[in-house]
């Protein structure tokens, strides 16, 4: 029940307050949840090291596929958004520059775009690179 209330409320809020702030808040929460989910899968991969080098290599090479490289791009974008937006909120609080909301939003978009373009230019070619099972060190 509670979870339905949250979903309904979030939808209402986005509809009634179609402002930049509401959308960035929404994205911040969603990316936060995605990062939490990622942390578990991350742990699952790294945790295999407890069972020895063999198991670790096997599990790591299992995620060195084009599909996972593709998901990695999503991951890096999620991290960058959450990071840049979080930093901008911290900066806003610390420096007390709440009256500069517009400039902050522009700065967030610009920094995010630069980070995204740089990382995409590195990562995109990897999707199409042939899959080499190098014991995880691809």
């Amino acid at each position: 029940m509670r979870i339905r209330y949250v979903f309904k409320g979030t939808k209402e809020e986005l509809k009634l307050n179609p402002n930049v702030g509401t959308f960035s808040w929404f994205l911040h929460r969603i990316t936060g949840l995605l990062l939490l989910f990622y942390l578990f899968t991350h742990m699952w991969v790294l945790g295999s090291a407890n069972k020895g080098a063999e198991a670790f290599n096997q599990r790591l090479s299992a995620v060195q596929t084009p599909l996972f490289h593709f998901l990695e791009i999503g991951l890096i974008l999620v991290i960058f958004y959450h990071m840049v937006n979080g930093l901008s909120i911290t900066l806003m609080d610390f420096a007390n520059i709440s009256s500069k909301h517009k400039s902050l939003v522009v700065a967030v978009v610009l920094v995010f775009a630069v980070l995204a373009i740089v990382s995409l230019s590195v990562m995109l070619p990897r999707i199409f690179a042939p899959h080499v099972p190098t014991g995880g060190l691809a």
């Binding site: 307050n17 402002n19 930049v20 702030g21 509401t22 808040w25 909120i89 609080d93 709440s98 909301h101």
Partner: peptide, 15 residues
């Protein structure tokens, strides 16, 4: 959550 809606809607331009 620092959403800025309150600042945006305030009819008295408060912050």
């Amino acid at each position: 959550h620092t959403i800025f809606n309150c600042q945006l809607v305030c009819p008295k331009d408060l912050n």
